[in-house]
Design a protein around this nucleic acid. Structure first.
Lengths: 159, 159
DNA sequence: CTTAATCCTGACTTTTATACTCAGGATTAA
DNA sequence: TTAATCCTGAGTATAAAAGTCAGGATTAAG
């Protein structure tokens, strides 16, 4: 899993749909574009993916727009990012997932690390739902405890 | 914190130094380049940063090379990545760290999320030392528990 | 004291991925 | 019939990443 603007925009847009839509009234992309300051065409691309991932359903025609296809507490952030962001595989060796790879030892030693980190991120994002974001209760489970000296520890502080 | 090849190469190179060097014999970049299949000039750039971050010390001249400047169990992966990777700030609003930002509500709701995630990653990587990687005990603390359906959950499976 | 191996540095180029645009079609409420 | 919307693919432009190059500084060994 990787997180770039695409994923971040997708999350923002979904929060917008969750906030301004309900079961009967869909939210149009042009409204989202305006509120979130994201280009309309770019949103169209994103929602194409979100729809294919069954996170939203669309209503075409005038007064159309998008609706969440499940309730906001059953959509996790990981769901959204998985849908929006294309999978990256910055790999150099032909290891099959699960099976270890056969190359140079030192290189392979680090595989566990990246896998572990990916799991860490995705398990974190799986625990957080759209509704949690609306309720602002996204932060508690993760201890902010310290990172006093280490600056530039920002992943992307701000959307 | 962001992780690209730069950070990954840096970790691989540091593991290499930890493995093939000791207190008296430094490891030359040309050896690392060959073993890890990373371009020499690129390594030179990386080690410039690693040295400035006091993670390695250099010995110039023939038979020179790099040494860890602390023992391998006192160097965390977070240390290495912080040193190698330049900080990203994919931000659109002028919020100051700590202080909340003043813009549009939905945008700001997601800030907590990204901050939490950054903390999640860095606290994970802080717990893992170079020595842990050599000992292959990097994976245990992080539960691999499940990710059955969700494929492309790879951050970067392979170096 | 010369040489070869190394570190050191900045500037440059190439490549790739991202972010974004554009053009046009399909659908449907009013 | 019209205007608002979704829908899609192809194209472009920008920026960041990855990698190269050229040349200097330092030093162990012969």
């Amino acid at each position: 899993m990787k997180i770039g603007t695409k994923g971040r925009y997708a999350v923002m847009a979904m929060v917008d749909v969750a906030k301004y839509g309900n079961k009967t009234t869909p939210v149009s992309l042009s409204d989202i574009a305006e509120r979130q300051e994201i280009s309309l065409s770019y949103l169209e691309q994103l929602f194409c993916k979100l729809r294919k991932a069954h996170l939203v359903s669309s209503m075409r025609g005038a007064l159309g727009g998008y609706l969440l296809s499940r309730s906001s507490d059953h959509i996790s952030i990981a769901d959204i990012i998985d849908a929006a962001e294309e999978p990256v595989r910055l790999t150099r060796c032909p290891s099959i997932k699960g099976k270890g790879c056969m190359k140079n030892e030192v290189q392979c030693l680090t595989h566990h690390l990246w896998e572990g980190m990916g799991n860490q991120i995705s398990s974190y994002l799986k625990k957080i739902s759209l509704q949690d974001i609306l309720d602002k209760k996204s932060l508690e489970p993760c201890a902010l405890i310290e990172s006093p000296s280490s600056n530039h520890l920002e992943y992307s502080t701000c959307s």
